[in-house]
Design a protein around this nucleic acid. Structure first.
Length: 342
DNA sequence: AAGCAGTTCAACCGCTGCTTA
DNA sequence: GTAAGCAGCGGTTGAACTGCT
């Protein structure tokens, strides 16, 4: 370290942030003076200033220095957010289509709350918009569907459970249901011998409703994300998610057989199902790194890979009487070990 | 009309990872 | 190799709005 903070700040045309009395020396200094910076809703005048400056000079440069340049008493981060989420051209607000709903749900199931990646697949939508939409509407919509199906399925399950319990006295359910041919799939084409950079084309197909083809020479955020996650290719170069995902999106399980229940028989919330599942718990590596994941019609997978139940047990777990029981029942050994170590 | 509860969404906060010196 | 500075991200907050009683 040869340069002091002050000299570096000067070189960048900035003054160093004065350290406040009693402030810790460790940790990050605030990006702006919180006492003089304006907060809250933006006025039309502020919007106009910001918009005209960016339209003239572009967004290239230093966001933190920008408000000073144009005389705005705003934090640079706030300016950036305002531009990206509201002032930027071609922004769409509200009125999400059915197709967009499906895309959001599909991607949420696959990659979790990576809103920026999801937003990148929906032109004109911002991550903030999608996040809000998911939290306020889509999640409830799905829970509503889920609830309906649960009510139907409960009747069937109750019958099945009675039969099983009468045999062995346990509350564990019998074998998982057969998984019909998948409608939802990711496919990653590759060129042999090209390493991780071989993911040159990313296409996605949700029941024929959505297709996002790779634009040659331009890596999609999702494709590069998958690449970052050290996607292991199968011999066919494809990753396919089973119909379970798709059918959940469309309202619960394919057979109406598996109901998600917590320890006290309380239905597990969507959040817990997705966010608490192994995808999130052990990182996407645990999900994508599995390699070829094919929901065959008999519920098995090919070439030593894992099926959906093994990878994402909380989406389709058998109902068990305890969390530990569920781990033992559903998770592959290495994941149980990982979770146990946490 | 008033009061309350629920919903929406813009904006904020704090953290992470990358870049630079 | 290290630390500062920054952009970007996801979670959270709270004001404004809406609907119900």
């Amino acid at each position: 370290m040869s340069l002091s903070t002050a000299s570096r700040a000067e070189r960048r045309g900035k003054h160093p942030q004065p350290q406040k009395k009693g402030e810790l020396t460790m940790g990050r200094a605030p990006c702006c003076d919180k006492e003089t910076v304006k907060k809250g809703p933006w006025s039309p005048e502020e919007d106009a200033k910001l918009k005209s400056y960016i339209q003239q000079h572009g967004t290239v440069g230093n966001w933190i220095a920008l408000p000073q340049k144009i005389g705005l008493k705003r934090c640079g981060k706030s300016c950036r957010l305002r531009w990206l989420n509201y002032l930027r051209p071609n922004i769409k607000h509200g009125g999400f289509s059915e197709e967009e709903d499906n895309i959001i749900c599909s991607l949420y199931v696959a990659i979790g709350s990576r809103w920026s990646i999801i937003a990148a697949q929906l032109p004109g939508r911002t991550d903030n918009d999608i996040k809000n939409y998911w939290n306020t509407k889509l999640k409830k919509k799905l829970l509503g569907k889920q609830h309906k199906n649960q009510q139907q399925a409960h009747r069937v399950c109750h019958k099945n459970q009675e039969t099983k319990e009468s045999k062995d006295g346990s509350s564990f359910w019998a074998t998982p249901p057969n998984i019909p041919t998948n409608q939802f799939k990711y496919q990653v084409d590759h060129h042999v011998g090209d390493g991780h950079a071989s993911i040159r084309k990313f296409s996605m197909n949700v029941d024929g409703r959505f297709s996002c083809n790779y634009d040659a020479g331009r890596e999609t955020p999702l494709a590069s994300f998958l690449e970052q996650q050290h996607l292991h290719r199968s011999s066919t170069g494809s990753i396919e998610l089973s119909e379970q995902v798709n059918s959940f999106i469309n309202g619960c399980s394919p057979s109406g057989y598996h109901i998600l229940q917590g320890p006290n028989g309380i239905p597990v919330e969507l959040d817990e199902m997705f966010c608490g599942n192994s995808v999130k718990s052990v990182g996407l590596d645990g999900f994508i790194g599995v390699g070829n994941m094919v929901g065959e019609s008999n519920g098995t997978s090919t070439s030593g890979s894992m099926n959906w139940n093994e990878v994402s047990p909380l989406i389709y777990p058998p109902v068990v009487s305890s969390y530990q029981g569920m781990q033992q029942q559903c998770l592959p050994d290495e994941l149980v070990h990982l979770l146990g170590a946490q």
